[in-house]
Amino acid sequence: MSALRGLVVWLTGLPGSGKTTIATAAAERLRSMGYRAEVLDGDWFRAHIDPEAGYTREERIKHLARVAWVARLLARNGVVALCSFVSPYREAREEARKIVSEEADFLEVYVRCPLEECIRRDPKGLYRRALAGEIKNFTGVSDPYEEPLSPDLVLDTVKNSASENVEKLVNLITSRLRDSRGA
């Protein structure tokens, strides 16, 4: 019996880099093509699934492991899980890959945007607050971001438009799904 497998697309990048914008538009596009797709977003996940999650390195690693388990459940049931999380540490992303890869494909997508541009965009005013010392352990300001060493895809949100990045991501996802289904 061959069940349709989904996959997990792990979008990582600095706060304000465009991860959720790209993930949401890609999910909509995939749904319009007949795929089952869900977005797991950092703000939503912390608010509804893991509200006790903190921001120390250890707390973030535990939190992202929980995200990976939820994404794995979705993927093994044929859903494309688009995970939009800063996930600043390579260690946490590798752990997510290990968790997911037992039952589904895992794609790491680096949403690249220079810190200066993220600070300029600052859609939620978080950089302003972090730079003023009001937010501790803020990625890019008082906590490091470890860029992926060999992501499956790099989406540059300064050089490319959101629609160009969505197109690149959807092409990668549909290609991977076709390959895994032998189509």
Results as ranks from 00 to 15, higher is better:
2 S>P: 01
2 S>H: 01
2 S>D: 01
2 S>E: 05
3 A>E: 02
4 L>V: 13
4 L>M: 09
4 L>K: 06
5 R>V: 04
7 L>H: 02
7 L>Q: 01
8 V>I: 08
8 V>D: 02
9 V>E: 03
10 W>D: 07
10 W>M: 01
11 L>N: 02
12 T>I: 04
14 L>H: 00
14 L>I: 03
15 P>V: 02
17 S>K: 00
20 T>H: 01
20 T>W: 04
20 T>F: 03
22 I>V: 10
23 A>V: 06
24 T>C: 00
25 A>L: 06
25 A>N: 00
26 A>C: 13
26 A>P: 08
27 A>Q: 01
28 E>L: 11
30 L>I: 10
30 L>R: 10
31 R>P: 06
31 R>C: 08
32 S>C: 05
32 S>N: 09
32 S>L: 14
33 M>D: 14
34 G>M: 12
34 G>R: 08
34 G>K: 06
35 Y>K: 08
36 R>G: 09
36 R>L: 11
36 R>E: 08
37 A>E: 13
38 E>W: 06
38 E>P: 05
38 E>M: 14
41 D>G: 07
41 D>R: 07
42 G>T: 12
44 W>F: 12
45 F>S: 09
45 F>E: 05
47 A>P: 12
48 H>I: 14
49 I>C: 07
49 I>S: 08
49 I>V: 15
50 D>N: 15
52 E>I: 15
53 A>F: 09
54 G>E: 11
54 G>Y: 14
54 G>K: 13
56 T>R: 10
56 T>L: 09
56 T>Q: 08
56 T>V: 11
57 R>W: 12
57 R>N: 06
57 R>Q: 06
58 E>T: 10
60 R>L: 11
61 I>T: 15
63 H>A: 15
63 H>T: 11
64 L>C: 09
64 L>H: 05
68 A>R: 03
69 W>T: 05
69 W>R: 13
71 A>F: 04
71 A>P: 06
72 R>E: 00
72 R>H: 05
72 R>W: 00
73 L>K: 01
73 L>S: 02
74 L>V: 00
74 L>F: 12
74 L>W: 03
75 A>E: 00
75 A>R: 04
75 A>C: 09
79 V>C: 08
79 V>L: 05
80 V>H: 09
81 A>D: 08
82 L>I: 11
83 C>V: 15
84 S>I: 13
85 F>A: 06
85 F>Q: 07
85 F>C: 12
